Amino acid sequence: MEENIGMPPQSLFEAMDTYIGERAANGTFLDGGGLYGTEDAVNFVVRKGEVTRVDGPYAEAKEIVGGWSLLQYDSLEDAVADQQAFAQLHADHWPEVTVVATLRQISEGPEPAEA
């Protein structure tokens, strides 16, 4: 989401509490939380075998990760539908901001080699 845009409206907090509460009750929501801005962030960049430290805030950052959640679904279709519902909460309660809600699967390690 955009950085330094202020606090979300109370109605979004309330809608998210309901959304998360329902998913926690049915076992879908496993963990999650919000993140502070980049003012205190520290990045470690590995490039060509060298590690460098870059302290925030980052003037070039147009969008930042504002939060994360770990959810478990029975199917990809269920995950996609629920992610759309999550995005719709933001459209309904905070329409003046741009939010990108990304759905990704968790890797459990390398795929087994085929024999």
Rank of each mutant, 00 (worst) to 15 (best):
S69D: 09
A25P: 00
T38I: 07
E3Y: 01
V45M: 09
Q84F: 00
E96T: 07
E22Y: 05
E2K: 09
E14M: 11
E77F: 04
F86I: 00
P9C: 04
P95N: 15
T102Y: 10
W68C: 06
I5D: 02
R53G: 04
R53I: 14
V46A: 15
V80S: 14
E111D: 13
E114M: 12
P9V: 04
E96K: 04
K62R: 10
E114Q: 13
L103K: 02
Q105D: 14
G66N: 05
L89G: 00
V65E: 15
E50R: 11
S107C: 04
Y58F: 15
K62H: 10
T52P: 00
M1N: 09
E14Y: 03
T18K: 10
Q105M: 14
A101Q: 07
N43W: 06
M16V: 05
A15N: 03
E111H: 10
L76N: 08
A81T: 11
A87V: 00
E111N: 11
F44V: 15
R53F: 06
W68H: 07
R53Y: 04
D78V: 03
T28I: 12
A79S: 12
V45I: 15
E60H: 03
G32A: 08
A81P: 01
A101V: 09
G6H: 07
V80D: 14
A115H: 01
E22C: 02
E114D: 13
D92G: 02
L76A: 14
G56A: 10
N43Q: 14
S107D: 13
Y73P: 00
V45R: 08
Q84T: 06
T18S: 06
G21F: 04
A79T: 09
G32N: 05
F44Y: 14
E2Q: 15
I106N: 03
G33E: 08
K48W: 02
Q105C: 13
R23F: 01
E96F: 01
G56H: 03
W94D: 12
N26C: 12
G6R: 07
Y58H: 01
G67K: 01
I64G: 03
G109D: 09
V99H: 06
E114T: 12
V97Y: 06
P57Q: 10
